[in-house]
Structures are given as structure tokens and as C-alpha cells.
């Protein structure tokens, strides 16, 4: 229990969010959509961290989430720069058409 929210609610919400993100990362073809899905999965992990931190009565979870959000910002900037460079070369960000490393 965190206040009056049971931990099971938090975990089910986190798992559902992670699965939605995983489905997007596996089934979509646009690189930007895949990247957004990865952000959703990261947020699902954040929700679980805060839920467990609250249930254990510590703030370690919130501290970890703070670092995760900062790293997500760094990751987003580099990832989007890669997409910009990729779009200049190939005129597409469809992952099926980007096969430079494939035989």
C-alpha cells in the first residue's frame, strides 16, 4: 500500500504500459514510432520503481527515476540526431528499408 493505492494496482498498470510499449516496438515499422514505444517502456519501469519505493517506504525509487529521466533525455537527443542523419542519407525512416548492415 502506498497511501491508499495498493501495490498490485501499480504493478498491473506498469505491466500493461510495458506491454503496450513492447507491442509498439515489435510491430511498428517507423523508426520514430519504435523510439516512442521504447520511451513508453521506460516509463512503465519508472512507474514500477516509484510503486515499489513507496511500498517499501524509501525514496531510492524516486532517486532512480530521476536518473532514468535524465538519461532518457540524453538518449532522445542522440537517437533523434541519428534519425536526422539517416533521413538525409536514405530519405526514409522505415526500418524495413534501412538494411545497410544486412548482406
Amino acid at each position: 500500500m502506498i497511501g491508499s493505492v495498493p501495490l498490485s494496482d501499480v504493478l498491473v498498470a506498469s505491466a500493461a504500459l510495458f506491454l503496450v510499449g513492447l507491442a509498439g516496438a515489435l510491430l511498428r515499422r517507423s523508426a520514430i514510432s519504435i523510439f516512442l514505444s521504447i520511451e513508453v517502456m521506460m516509463n512503465a519501469a519508472n512507474l514500477a520503481l516509484i510503486g515499489y519505493g513507496g511500498a517499501l517506504g524509501t525514496r531510492e525509487g524516486q532517486l532512480l527515476v530521476f536518473f532514468v529521466i535524465a538519461i532518457a533525455a540524453a538518449e532522445a537527443s542522440v537517437g533523434l540526431a541519428i534519425f536526422v542523419a539517416l533521413f538525409r542519407h536514405k530519405e526514409t525512416i522505415d526500418v524495413n528499408k534501412i538494411n545497410l548492415l544486412k548482406w
Partner: peptide
Amino acid sequence: YVMLFAPFIAAIQVIVY
């Protein structure tokens, strides 16, 4: 996050994310 007593994380979620 606000409901889980993490208002600071909620604020940076809105501002940063």
C-alpha cells in the same frame, strides 16, 4: 506519480518528458 506521493517526479515528468 502524484497519487504515489512523488510530486517532484510528477513535475519533472511533465517538464522534461
